[in-house]
Nucleic acid binder design. Structure first.
Length: 318
DNA sequence: AAGACACACAACCGCATGGTT
DNA sequence: TAACCATGCGGTTGTGTGTCT
């Protein structure tokens, strides 16, 4: 079936491109007086050299009196992110939850702002899952080990430029590792397979042809974490493990969206999993990005305290 | 000051869908 | 049932504006 064009494109009279204030006024006046009726017939009746489709778009995306303009609030952005994690690119459905915002506007805002925000947080904007690349962790592990090796080779020479560089690298790597770990936790996805990361170190770095001894992998206390990066930690069988680590107060949480500002739709459409709530995580390791915007140093201290309490060090993890 | 570039957003395009004849 | 029409939707493009060099 051949579709009829919405406008007579051969007439040469149909205007395209940005609307002028005069055109806006004509359209606005006409719709307010008569309603839009048939969009196809509207341009002629309103005295506009536009196609009906263009008029409809201009009205629904710009001229409609109930359109809310201006900056998006944090709450609106969170709603968009939550809904997108559940609905995907269903802009009109998302827009129906945000009075005064159009699907086009939300789509633009997503593409220009929210996508980047999520990427900066290490979250894949399509899947809403963390970009938790174990290769990255392994690389960081290598860097940290190399850095520590340098320190071992020059333990008393604090002024050595090589040593200073190594210290800085160590701190940088620790921070990067922390950020990666926090991304994993904040987005309620699998904990990294630390044992696998540890194993990947073996044999990579030698000192005087001495193979690095393989240490026992660190495991989170009472929790036999042994998942790979692709595996979702959402198997109900793991609830017992989660309870074992987080205590009796553990409750299964909704995933698939950030539930802090969740509306009822998200609860009904997401799946449950055996993941701890942010509060439960924070009770163990201190504040996270979910409850504070810039707790990096607190997180750092909390992690070090946590590791110290458990009798581990950074080197154990790596 | 001017050109290059990046960004934000308005507008367009093609397809899908549902209703009517 | 086929043809046509109106509208909705999502991806893409075009354009104005601000920033950088």
């Amino acid at each position: 079936m051949v579709r009829a064009p919405c406008c007579d494109e051969n007439s040469g009279l149909i205007k395209k491109g940005p609307w002028t204030p005069e055109e806006d006024e004509k359209l606005l006046d006409y719709v307010q007086l008569h309603g839009h009726g048939s969009w196809r017939a509207l341009p002629k009746r309103a005295g506009l050299n536009r196609c009906g489709k263009s008029c409809r778009l201009r009205w629904t995306n710009y001229l409609r009196p109930d359109i809310k303009r201006g900056k998006y609030s944090d709450e609106e952005e969170q709603i968009i992110i939550n809904l997108h994690s559940v609905l995907g690119n269903k802009w009109s459905k998302i827009a129906s939850h945000l009075p005064g915002r159009t699907d086009n506007e939300i789509k633009n805002h997503w593409n220009t702002h929210l996508r980047k925000k999520l990427l900066q947080r290490g979250i894949d904007p399509q899947t809403h899952k963390p970009i938790s690349d174990l290769n990255l962790l392994a690389n960081l592990a290598h860097l940290l080990y190399a850095s520590n090796l340098t320190n071992l080779m020059n333990p008393w020479d604090n002024n050595n430029a090589f040593r200073q560089h190594s210290d800085a690298t160590t701190q940088l790597v620790k921070i990067q590792l922390l950020q990666t770990m926090m991304q994993v936790i904040n987005t309620t996805t699998p904990l990294p397979n630390i044992a696998q990361t540890q194993t990947s170190l073996s044999g990579h770095y030698n000192n005087n042809n001495t193979t690095i001894p393989q240490q026992a992998p660190l495991e989170f206390p009472n929790l036999d974490v042994n998942v790979n990066s692709q595996q979702q930690f959402n198997d109900f069988a793991d609830i017992d493990k989660a309870i074992a680590w987080f205590g009796d107060g553990f409750q299964p949480q909704v995933v698939g969206a950030n539930c802090n500002n969740m509306n009822s739709d998200c609860h009904t459409q997401s799946s449950e999993s055996a993941l701890p709530s942010i509060n439960q995580v924070e009770s163990k390791i201190g504040p996270t990005y979910a409850s504070s915007q810039s707790p990096t140093s607190n997180i750092f201290e909390a992690w070090e305290k946590f590791l110290d309490d458990e009798g581990h060090s950074w080197e154990d993890i790596l």
